[in-house]
């Protein structure tokens, strides 16, 4: 039996300890805001925050997060009003929206590390998150807006 802490809540897992965190979150814990996009840490759709770091849940196993604090999009802000989330809505960022939770988590993690990133720093930090609809211009502007106060 493994105990993990997701969004402040302890959860038990008695299955394969090597199960990717992504599938534990989605299929076992019912936290479907974290998305599958590639399974190989190539697209960032499954980004969660672990101990203030953006992490790809698809290549992180459940056993890897024992004793660490995992935050998913559902736990980013109690009312869904994190500055990054608010900036996202203000700039009408999403098209299909599927990759956006991962983008928001990556943006939120960036601002924890660097509260006032330049546009170049945003472009570099967000480069691991693919958006096939191509919302990059607005994502970049939204992260910047969140850093300057929404």
């Amino acid at each position: 039996m493994i105990k993990v802490k997701i969004n402040g809540q302890e959860q038990n897992w008695d299955g394969d300890p090597d199960l990717p965190l992504l599938w534990f979150l989605r299929d076992e814990a019912g936290l479907t805001g974290t998305k599958y996009g590639c399974g190989q840490a190539l697209c960032g759709s499954c980004t969660v925050i672990i101990d203030k770091q953006a992490v790809r849940a698809c290549i992180t196993s459940v056993s890897d997060v024992v004793g660490r604090d995992v935050t998913t999009i559902e736990g980013l802000h109690p009312t869904g009003d994190h500055p990054v989330q608010k900036a996202w809505r203000q700039l009408n960022v999403p098209q299909c929206g599927y990759c956006q939770t991962g983008q928001i988590m990556q943006g939120a993690a960036l601002l924890m590390d660097n509260p006032k990133p330049s546009h170049d720093q945003i472009r570099e930090a967000m480069a691991g998150n693919i958006c096939r609809c191509g919302c990059y211009q607005r994502i970049e502007n939204a992260v910047h807006l969140a850093s300057t106060g929404v």
């Binding site: 989605r26 299929d27 019912g30 936290l31 479907t32 805001g33 974290t34 998305k35 599958y36 998913t72 999009i73 559902e74 869904g80 989330q85 996202w88 809505r89 009408n92 999403p94 929206g97 599927y98 956006q100 939770t101 928001i104």
Partner: peptide
């Protein structure tokens, strides 16, 4: 212009439901 999409809030909080999210 400037009408936000109806799913905007749900998308930003992880509550928008795609095919993969049905349980």
């Amino acid at each position: 212009g400037q009408i936000g999409i109806v799913d905007l809030r749900d998308i930003t909080v992880g509550k928008a439901h795609y095919g993969a999210d049905i349980r």
